[in-house]
Computed example of a mutant assay.
Amino acid sequence: MTSRVSLLLVHGAHHGAWCWEPVLARLSEHGIPAQAVDLPLDGYSSDVATVRSAVQELRADGPVAVVAHSYAGIVVAAAAHAASRLIFVAARLPLPGESQAALHWNLPGLREATSVDGDGWAHLGPAARDFFYSDCPSHAADLATSRLRPMRSVVPTDPLEMPAWTTVPTAYIVCRRDKVVRVDRQRERAALVDDAYELDCGHSPFFALPDELTGLLMVQAAKTATHSM
């Protein structure tokens, strides 16, 4: 049933499509079509346009379930109204009319590990490794840290009037040992959607618990296929 559904995986701040590689490999083993998109990270509006285009392209072949990690939650909420299902992973889930720039979402620490250059690009220092990957295998954490990208995209001040999750079936995956995103915020937003799960990991379940994360995505793919019949 799930072969009819495509998964679109959207990374968070400073990352790239590469962070989904462990999950993509596992989904492929189960015959579930999936792809990860690279956000430009040069501005929120261009990130939204990239996801909207990717969803529309995949929709031509059937139902699409969009997976959003961290910052990508705002992007997907703005861009994925045409999706069949949304899955937020430790991701911002904006309420209608709520300014994300005014919301206290992240834990302290990562901001202090970030510097912004004269052109507005934010760069992460070495301390970011512990915030993102403290519970991940060392080799994966080292490689991921070396691939982190600068970004100029910022959390928008203007609220969304109709975030996609208010009209599209949605699941939320809480990362209960997250060092980046407040766990109480994650649970608060998870309580608002159709399905809620928790993983016993930090901010990067695609490295820390790829089997468990893939399993949850497969459940959501199956639900998408059933509801699309």
Rank of each mutant, 00 (worst) to 15 (best):
Asp38Phe: 00
Asp38Gly: 01
Asp38Lys: 00
Leu39Met: 01
Pro40Ala: 06
Pro40Lys: 06
Pro40Arg: 03
Pro40Trp: 03
Asp42Pro: 00
Gly43Ile: 09
Tyr44Leu: 12
Tyr44Gly: 01
Tyr44Phe: 15
Ser45Cys: 04
Ser45Lys: 10
Ser46Ile: 01
Val48Asp: 05
Ala49Gln: 12
Ala49Pro: 13
Thr50Glu: 01
Arg52Glu: 11
Arg52Tyr: 05
Ser53Gly: 09
Ala54Ile: 04
Gln56Gly: 11
Gln56Ala: 14
Gln56Lys: 09
Gln56Trp: 06
Leu58Ile: 10
Leu58Met: 13
Pro63Asn: 03
Val64Glu: 02
Val64Gln: 07
Val66Asn: 09
Val66His: 03
Val66Ile: 02
Val67Met: 07
Val67Trp: 14
Ala68Met: 04
Ala68Glu: 07
His69Trp: 09
His69Lys: 10
Ser70Leu: 06
Gly73Asn: 12
Gly73Lys: 11
Ile74Met: 15
Ile74Gln: 10
Val75Pro: 02
Val76Ile: 04
Ala77Pro: 09
Ala78Glu: 03
Ala80Gly: 11
Ala80Gln: 05
His81Cys: 07
Ala83Tyr: 03
Ala83His: 07
Ser84Met: 08
Arg85Phe: 03
Arg85Thr: 07
Leu86Asn: 06
Ile87Phe: 01
Val89Met: 12
Val89Phe: 06
Val89Tyr: 00
Ala90Asn: 06
Ala90Ser: 15
Ala91Pro: 10
Arg92Pro: 11
Arg92Thr: 10
Leu93Tyr: 11
Pro94Arg: 02
Pro94Trp: 02
Leu95Glu: 15
Leu95Lys: 08
Pro96Phe: 11
Pro96Ala: 05
Pro96Glu: 04
Pro96Ser: 09
Pro96Asp: 02
Gly97Ala: 13
Gly97Val: 15
Glu98Trp: 11
Glu98Lys: 00
Gln100Val: 08
Gln100Leu: 09
Ala101Gly: 03
Ala101Trp: 03
Ala102Gln: 15
His104Trp: 08
His104Phe: 06
Asn106Gly: 02
Leu107Lys: 13
Pro108Gln: 06
Gly109Cys: 12
Gly109Asn: 11
Leu110Ser: 04
Arg111Gln: 11
Arg111Met: 01
Glu112Met: 02
Val116Glu: 13
Asp117Ala: 08
Asp117Gln: 15
Asp117Trp: 10
Gly118Asn: 08
Asp119Thr: 07
Asp119Cys: 14
Asp119Val: 06
Gly120Lys: 12
Trp121Phe: 15
Trp121Ile: 08
Ala122Lys: 08
His123Thr: 09
His123Gly: 01
His123Ala: 09
His123Ser: 09
Leu124Cys: 05
Gly125Ser: 11
Pro126Lys: 05
Ala128Ser: 15
Arg129His: 10
Arg129Lys: 11
Phe131Met: 08
Phe132Arg: 07
Phe132Ser: 02
Tyr133Trp: 13
Tyr133Cys: 08
Ser134His: 15
